[in-house]
């Protein structure tokens, strides 16, 4: 049942490849704005590279999550999911996983290229990559809760950002911080373990919250 809905979600997005590619373009564009806005000096860029990459990734996940439930809501598929005998928890989990596989994972994959363009010191790459790998699932999970609460509202976009951005603070702090740790030559295991713990906690709790949010938004 879980695999079936995961398959359905993946297939749905696969038919509209723009949904995968657009967040990636957004991510790349935001990252390239910073050298233009701040300065092309490698030393300066190197020091702010972790923050730029993380903030841009966070915004890309946030933006793409707005449409997470919208289509199902508009087509009425969401109503069916709510009354279906299958567990809503698993359905939410499938949606989140599909979203992460198609948005989060490509971001993680392309991040090293951007880090290189921003002159991140070589010692920071592993921490950035692993940190994003562990952190983007948390970003997806939290965004899914916000998307579930705002589905069906007019102007959901800005509201979604207002709800979700403050919840992103811990992931951002640890994710960008661990890169700084690595560049400074400090041990990163502890912080990465913390990010992993946050990912596990988020993915066990968030589907329940998403399910509750969808029930609230649909009025039952």
């Amino acid at each position: 049942m879980f695999l079936a809905s995961l398959h359905r979600e993946l297939l749905l997005v696969w038919r509209r490849p723009a949904e995968i590619i657009n967040p990636l373009f957004f991510f790349v564009m935001v990252c390239s704005l910073f050298p233009l806005a701040v300065s092309p000096r490698p030393a300066l860029l190197a020091s702010i590279a972790p923050g730029i990459v993380w903030v841009a990734a966070l915004l890309a996940v946030l933006l793409s999550s707005e449409s997470l439930f919208r289509q199902d809501h508009d087509s009425g598929a969401l109503e069916q999911m709510l009354v279906a005998p299958q567990s809503l928890y698993l359905a939410a989990l499938a949606k989140m996983l599909a979203h992460w596989l198609l948005t989060g994972l490509p971001l993680v994959a392309i991040a090293p290229v951007l880090a290189y363009m921003l002159h991140l010191p070589a010692s920071g790459y592993t921490a950035l990559f692993v940190g994003l790998l562990l952190g983007t699932p948390v970003l997806t999970a939290v965004a899914a809760i916000g998307a579930a609460l705002t589905v069906g509202l007019r102007n959901a976009g800005v509201l979604l950002a207002l709800l979700v951005l403050p919840l992103y603070v811990p992931v951002l702090v640890f994710g960008a911080g661990v890169v700084i740790y690595a560049v400074d030559g400090l041990a990163t295991d502890g912080v990465l373990a913390l990010l992993a713990a946050m990912a596990i906690a988020a993915w066990t709790l968030a589907p329940a919250a998403v399910a509750a949010g969808l029930r609230i938004s649909s009025g039952n």
């Binding site: 919840l167 811990p170 640890f174 740790y181 609230i216």
Partner: peptide, 26 residues
């Protein structure tokens, strides 16, 4: 909806407190 958000928020506040202290020391 606000109930759900504030429950999530309270869990978050604990982590925020910890993360911000760590960030400050960093």
């Amino acid at each position: 909806a606000a109930s759900l958000l504030s429950v999530v928020g309270v869990i978050n506040v604990v982590v925020v407190k910890y993360s911000v202290e760590w960030w400050n020391s960093l």
